[in-house]
Computed example of a mutant assay.
Amino acid sequence: MTSRLLSCLRLKPGRRKSFHRRKFYRDLAEVGADSFPIVTIISACTGIILALQSAQQLEKVGAISYVANLVGVTIIRELGPLLTAIIVTGRSGAAFTAEIATMQISEEIDALEVMGIEPVRFLVVPKLIAMLIMVPCLTVWADFVGIFSGGLFSSAALGLNHVTYFNNTVEFLKLQDIFSGLVKSGGFAVAITMIGCWQGFLAREGAADVGRKTTNSVVISIFMIILLDLFFTALNFIFR
């Protein structure tokens, strides 16, 4: 499937766009808008939990003002991209697998080929582009919500000045931290799409296989996300 996908992504000069616009917009909405509420809620809870947990430890050494630094770095570098990718895996990655697996079993994939429509171009390319656009956007939003909620909690419950909190966050974070998180989110987006669609095309054994392939898709995607996170973190450590 990878070679077919790469060939579909090569747009020849003068050739019109190779994916269905309406399907692309639907995938954008499914990946982005439909995931927006749950990403917001989980990111807000994560920011508050980080602020609370770090405050309990930093208070023992009289360094509670460093709560802002810890929350900001942890969310931007790790938890923002990671949690967003896991949420998108459970929603969109599973939906991709179920859609393609159902089409495969009902022989709709074969019907597309008979009509001269390349299944990878029609089904996978719009999903991949939608993921590459929306997962980084959701990650940026998750970063903002996590830091903002952590700041509100620190101001209300820990007595930290909210202006000082956000100033410390801005001063401590580097452009490299934000770039690292966005690169991770892009890698996660590719992995989720490829694994989800690949598992969908593997469906063969009737309706029960749809559930099995969807489960496999989510498990493999989360495992690959963790491995990619380790890989990108190691690269960031080596070239820091």
Rank of each mutant, 00 (worst) to 15 (best):
F172E: 01
E118D: 15
D209L: 06
L152T: 10
A101D: 08
V163D: 14
D110A: 14
G150M: 12
C197T: 15
I100L: 12
E108V: 08
I109T: 09
I109Y: 11
I195S: 07
M103L: 13
L173E: 05
R121W: 01
K174P: 01
L112F: 13
V114F: 01
M103Q: 11
M134W: 06
F166N: 10
F166W: 09
R204Q: 15
E107W: 00
G181E: 09
A189G: 10
S149D: 02
I100P: 04
M103N: 02
M134Q: 10
V190Q: 03
M131S: 15
E171L: 15
F148A: 15
V145E: 11
A208V: 09
D177C: 08
G196E: 09
I195L: 13
L132P: 00
S106F: 07
A142N: 01
P119D: 12
Q104R: 14
L160N: 00
K127R: 15
G146K: 04
I105N: 08
F122I: 08
A101N: 08
V125H: 12
E205T: 07
L158G: 04
V140T: 09
N167L: 11
E113T: 10
V140M: 14
T164Q: 13
D143T: 07
L160H: 00
E118K: 03
A156E: 07
Q176Y: 08
T139L: 13
V135R: 00
F144E: 02
P136G: 13
A130S: 15
A189P: 06
I178C: 08
A207T: 12
A207V: 12
P119T: 09
T169K: 00
P126K: 04
F172A: 01
I109E: 12
G150V: 11
K174L: 11
A130M: 11
G181Y: 03
M131N: 09
D110K: 10
E171F: 14
K184S: 07
F172M: 06
L138G: 08
F201N: 06
K174I: 04
Q176L: 09
I117E: 08
L132G: 03
L175V: 12
I147K: 05
D209G: 03
H162N: 09
Q199N: 11
L173N: 04
A156S: 13
T139K: 13
V120H: 07
S154A: 15
S185N: 00
W141H: 15
E99Q: 14
T164N: 13
D110W: 00
I117Q: 08
A203E: 09
D177P: 03
Q199D: 01
L173I: 10
P136F: 12
F122C: 10
L152S: 03
Y165E: 07
T193R: 01
G146Y: 07
K174V: 05
T139F: 10
V114E: 07
A208G: 11
L132T: 00
H162K: 10
W141G: 06
G186L: 15
E113Q: 14
M131P: 00
D177L: 10
F148H: 10
G196C: 12
V124C: 02
G186V: 10
Y165I: 05
T102E: 09
G200H: 02
M131C: 15
D209N: 05
